[in-house]
Amino acid sequence: MQLHNIDFNLLLPLRVLLEERSVSRAAERMHMSQPALSASLARLRRHFNDELLERRGNAYTLTPLAAQLLERSYSALAGLERIFLAQAEFDPTTTTREFTVVSSDYGISVLGGPLATVLTQEAPRARLRFHPITTAAVNNAPDSLRDLDGLLMPHGFITDGSHEDLFADRWVCVVAADNTVVGDRLELEQLSTLPWVYTLSGPSEYTPAAKHMQLLGVEPRVDVVTGSFLVVPALLRGSDRIALVQESLATQMGAGGGVRILEAPFDVVPLVEAFWWNPVYDRDPEHQWFRSKLHEAVTRAGLRPPRET
C-alpha cells in the first residue's frame, strides 16, 4: 500500500478511540459528533480488516491488533508533531512541544523537578513527559529513541548513539534508621551475612555496584529484588536489610528519617549519568536547546559534575 492512499486524518481518531474504548467518550474528547466518529471507526475497521473494538458485556475491549496499534499510534503522532511543529529558528517562549525522556525513577527523582522548573521558566507552554525504562528502549537504542528526545542512563548499558555526560554520583549503603545490627559503619563480612534489597538499574540488569561487589567475592543474601529505587526505604523498614543506592537519592531518602546512610566497605566505581539520543537530532535546534536545559537542571539540582568524583 502506498502512502498517498492513506488518510492520515484517521490517526488521531484511531488513538483516541482506542484509548477511550467508546465512541461517545472519544467524540466528546475530540469535539466531534458521534456519527462522524462512528464513520471514522468504520473506515478504520475496513482499512485494518479488524474490529479493533469488540463488545464484552457492557464495555468494549481492544482486539490484539488494536492493542498493538495503540502503542504505535503514540510514536506516529509524536513523529508527525516533530515534523509539522519544526521551526527554522526555535523560540522556547512560544513552543508547545512535548519533550519526552526515558528514565528510571532515580533519574526522575534527582533531576526531574529541577528540569521541569527550568522548562516552566523558559518554555511555559512546553510539556515534559517521562517514560519508564524498558528493555527494548535500552537494547534497541538508538532506533528506539527515534521518536523520543532521549534516555537518562548511566554508562555501561548503551554503546551506540549520541550522548552527553550530565553528572556523577557515588554508591552508598543504606539501612533502616532503626537497624540495631549495623552500627556506625558496615563491616565487609556483614555484606555476606545480612539480607539485601537489590535494585535493578534496568529491567534486567543489577546495578554496577552490585556486580562489583560480586567480583570481590561477596555473595549477598538477597531477600528482595525491585526495579524501583524509590521503594527501597519501605523494603528496609523494620528489618536488618542493606541496599546500595546512589548518594544523591540516599540523601533524599535520609531527609525523611527512614534510612541511615553508610559508606560502602569497599571501593565502588562512581556512576556517570548521561543523556543518550538518536544522532538524527544532533543538529536539531529544539533538541540542542533541550540538552542545554538538562545541564542547567544539573546545576540547579546541585549534582556533581561528571569529572568530579
Rank of each mutant, 00 (worst) to 15 (best):
M1A: 12
H4W: 02
L10W: 05
L11I: 15
L12H: 07
L14R: 12
R15T: 09
R15C: 04
L18S: 11
S22C: 13
A27S: 13
M30V: 12
M30E: 11
M32D: 03
M32W: 07
S38M: 08
S40M: 09
L44W: 12
L44K: 10
R45V: 04
R46T: 15
R46I: 10
H47L: 14
F48T: 07
D50A: 09
D50C: 09
L53D: 11
E54W: 08
Y60N: 14
T61P: 00
L65C: 02
Q68S: 12
E71C: 05
Y74P: 00
L77Q: 09
A78W: 11
A78E: 14
I83N: 02
I83S: 05
F84W: 15
L85D: 13
A88L: 05
T95Y: 02
E98I: 11
V101H: 01
S103T: 15
S103C: 08
S104N: 14
V110F: 05
L111E: 06
L111R: 10
G112P: 03
L115D: 01
A116N: 05
T117R: 10
T120A: 14
Q121H: 07
Q121D: 14
E122P: 00
R127Y: 00
R127T: 10
L128T: 04
R129I: 11
A136T: 07
A136D: 06
N139H: 14
N139V: 15
N140P: 00
N140S: 14
P142Y: 04
S144E: 04
S144C: 08
D149H: 11
G150N: 08
G150I: 04
G150D: 08
L151Q: 07
L151F: 10
G156N: 13
I158T: 06
T159Q: 11
D160Y: 11
G161V: 06
G161S: 03
H163N: 13
L166Y: 04
A168H: 06
R170F: 11
W171A: 15
W171D: 13
V172P: 01
C173I: 14
V175P: 00
V175W: 00
D184H: 12
R185S: 15
E187N: 13
E187F: 07
L191E: 05
L191Y: 09
T193C: 01
T193P: 01
W196P: 04
G202F: 03
S204N: 14
T207M: 12
P208C: 08
A209W: 10
K211C: 04
L216H: 14
S228L: 12
R237L: 07
S239M: 05
S239Y: 01
I242K: 02
V245M: 02
L249V: 07
A250F: 02
A250V: 05
Q252Y: 01
M253V: 07
A255Q: 14
G258L: 11
R260Y: 01
L262H: 10
L262M: 03
P265M: 10
F266D: 10
F266E: 09
V269K: 10
N278A: 15
P279A: 08
P285K: 07
R291M: 01
R291W: 01
K293F: 00
K293G: 00
H295Q: 12
H295W: 03
A297D: 04
R304F: 01
P305W: 02
E308L: 10
T309K: 04
